[in-house]
Design a protein around this nucleic acid. Sequence first.
DNA 1: TCCAGCACTCTCGCCGACCGAGTGCCAATC
DNA 2: GATTGGCACTCGGTCGGCGAGAGTGCTGGA
Lengths: 339, 339
Amino acid sequence: MSEERRLDVLRAIVEDYVRTREPVGSRILTERHQLGVSPATVRNDMAALEEAGLIAQPHTSAGRIPTDKGYRLFVDQLAEVRPLTMPQKRAIETFLSEAVDLDDVVARAGRLIAQLTGQVAVVQYPSLRRSGLRHLELVPTAEGRLLVVVITDTGRVEQRFLDAPVGLDDGTLGELRARFNAAAAGHRLTEIGSAFARVTEAMSDEHRALATAVAEVVTAALTEESEERIVLTGQANLARSSMRFEQGLRPVLEALEEQVVLLGLLTDMTDDAGVAVSIGHENRLAGLSETSVVTSGYGSSDGDTVAILSSIGPTRMDYPGTIAAVRAVARYLSRVLPS
Amino acid sequence: MSEERRLDVLRAIVEDYVRTREPVGSRILTERHQLGVSPATVRNDMAALEEAGLIAQPHTSAGRIPTDKGYRLFVDQLAEVRPLTMPQKRAIETFLSEAVDLDDVVARAGRLIAQLTGQVAVVQYPSLRRSGLRHLELVPTAEGRLLVVVITDTGRVEQRFLDAPVGLDDGTLGELRARFNAAAAGHRLTEIGSAFARVTEAMSDEHRALATAVAEVVTAALTEESEERIVLTGQANLARSSMRFEQGLRPVLEALEEQVVLLGLLTDMTDDAGVAVSIGHENRLAGLSETSVVTSGYGSSDGDTVAILSSIGPTRMDYPGTIAAVRAVARYLSRVLPS
DNA sequence: TCCAGCACTCTCGCCGACCGAGTGCCAATC
DNA sequence: GATTGGCACTCGGTCGGCGAGAGTGCTGGA
């Protein structure tokens, strides 16, 4: 009983089940794949695979379907990478490069993933905490308040209002702006706290209060967890016939709606190394126990990860195709990003 | 056969069907409502209502359910307004006032509607075309390009890049910024085109090209239809048991995903007068033929509509409750908006 | 104008039978 | 020792028939 053929059988089961989404039996398997053995032999292999917890049968007289563990082995060892076709690559590139601003880039990336994989796409906006500061602007408003605008090098723009002290002249404002911008140059947003502190200290007593207030507002705005944003695309794909879940759509939709928790899951599973896959019950979220999540970080061209994008579908998904799509979009996104 | 009692019967049918979502028969009707007549009489009324196209029966031996036309009559003439409770109102007010910026306001409004109505909420970002300009900022970037940032009085921030001509000094930039801001003060974004034209003409030959470029980028960015944005909340509510659609979720999810078309529908049905309701097949979108849409404009406190928010659910929805919720949130939103 | 009674229709749920797919095991074979 | 053909067995899905229940329309009388 060769170990190698057993894995061939597992691969065949996964591929057939993904395609037909029906439990696959020993006869069908020998008919559709060149295994070179009879159904009876395949049955023996299947018994061993089931013993190992890699496949299971829904009920006694049905064929086998892969378990989460079976998919895991398939993804880790059996799946062959299937790169996208050239036309596909070109389509991604041009579609992304036509974006006019960050909102547009994120929206287009989501649509690409959703369309390429036929599943739900999740795209995170570049995290403020991992971005750099491009420019800080201070604008006095008519109502006597101060508008603080932060522009990151990843293209995000955040704004906050501040109650400005009376007697604020343009000169002071200009100086403040210049100093803060100079101090922040080249730093991550998370590090500007200390840089700003030095600026504040150096200010004259008269303006220190204002400077402190500005520094506080900026750091507060940029470290708030609530400022992490994600966009979902392709939820309509959930209703397609290929997406029947045992428990129905409800737990899945609910899990997707909990954006904070969802983002936490994605963040935890993403490493810097490339595409990560989390299968079925491996997902911490109960609502996603019938789904698999394929994730990759993306970032500026120098390789830093500033955000995450992923595709979510049933555990019975086309892993090679999904992985290829996520990887490709993440790569082009990184190239386009610092628009 | 009194016309009045017939309408009472219709109202009773709508209310019962909305609550139980089961076809309602003549006996149940007399038991649950004080109609003061026997089932047989009710049956006669029902026959008349069916003749008039206001109710229908799914099959011969089943009770009656309202038709779209029946709901329409109910909404227009029979429904009693049911204002929110004080605690609800207070909850809306405080929840909205805790928002830190526009993204947050829109997200919170969506969550409120979704939660109050138990349906899907659609909230449009304040339309750029209907907003005013608060501030225009010009920032030279390290790569020799010019970053144009537009901040509206409704809190939206848009940014675009521009290839800047060489030899651009801070003085020129400052002058340009000051002139544009002065010219735009108090105008709708749609009107600033002509105001900007005057600025451009007044510039020296040397800088006119730059000024024109800036003016063009700004007006282009603000009139693009693609810049209209909407946010969906509560899609998980679609999976609740109360939301069974004949055709399944698919057409609904697909319709919601077509954001441009959806926004067009909402825009068309919204008038300035308050809450508008579109029922079943009245909706242009085929995918929404089993749903009703309840919409209201919202805007700054002076009453101008700058955007739309709405709640979408099955035609069998709690119309009075949904209308009350949409109206209340729109009202408070208008108050909070110019943060 | 209302109402009680009645015959009629149609859906739904239940039951039993049948069919086919797939399995596990065993003895024979390579 | 691995492989294979044969065979008995299990079990879910489908189909037809049947009875119960709900609701209707109609008719004739108050």
